[in-house]
Computed example of a mutant assay.
Amino acid sequence: MTRFSTRVELHNAKSEDYEKLHSEMEKRGFDRTIKAEGVLYKMPDASYIYDGDVDANAVHDKARAAVNATGIGGGIVVTQSAGILVSGLKKA
């Protein structure tokens, strides 16, 4: 299974737009928490983790569909993870 980090920025968004985004991302298998060294942490705002047997293009397409479902535009960055190191995040 491959892990991807995904960051989304909605253009000219209000807080309720991000709530819709979070819901749409969750429907598509994205998570807003990450486990590191046995501890569950909250991801930074509008950042998500996706674990699956897919490639970065498929993850991007899922995120794009979630952004489109909000009805406003947005930018997306998808990065395949080879490992993770966290600091300063709040525990979930």
Rank of each mutant, 00 (worst) to 15 (best):
K91N: 13
V77P: 03
L40D: 14
G71P: 06
T6Y: 04
D31M: 06
H11Q: 12
Q80F: 00
V8S: 10
I34C: 04
Y50T: 04
Y50H: 14
K90M: 05
I72C: 05
I34T: 10
M25P: 09
G74C: 11
N68V: 13
L40C: 03
V8G: 12
A56W: 07
A56H: 06
G75P: 02
G29R: 09
G29H: 05
Y48T: 03
E37F: 08
T70C: 11
K90R: 15
R7D: 01
I84Y: 01
Y50G: 03
H60S: 03
A46N: 09
V54T: 08
G52Q: 06
L10P: 07
Y48V: 05
H22L: 11
G52I: 00
L85Y: 14
K27F: 02
G74T: 10
D31E: 15
L10D: 05
H22I: 08
S87F: 11
H60E: 01
E26C: 01
L10K: 05
G88E: 06
S81M: 15
H22C: 08
Y48I: 03
D31T: 08
E16W: 00
Y50I: 05
E16D: 15
V8I: 15
K62M: 07
A82G: 14
A66D: 03
G29V: 04
N68L: 03
L10T: 05
M1F: 01
K14C: 01
A56K: 13
K62D: 02
M25H: 09
P44T: 08
V59I: 02
K42W: 00
A69S: 08
A36F: 12
V67I: 14
V77R: 13
K62P: 01
A65S: 13
K35R: 14
M43C: 11
G88I: 15
V54S: 06
E19W: 06
T2M: 13
E24N: 15
V8W: 09
R28W: 00
V54L: 02
K62C: 01
D55Q: 03
D61S: 13
I34Q: 06
L21C: 07
K90D: 01
R7V: 06
T33K: 12
V86L: 01
S81W: 12
S15E: 14
S47E: 02
L10G: 10
A13I: 08
S15F: 07
T2A: 14
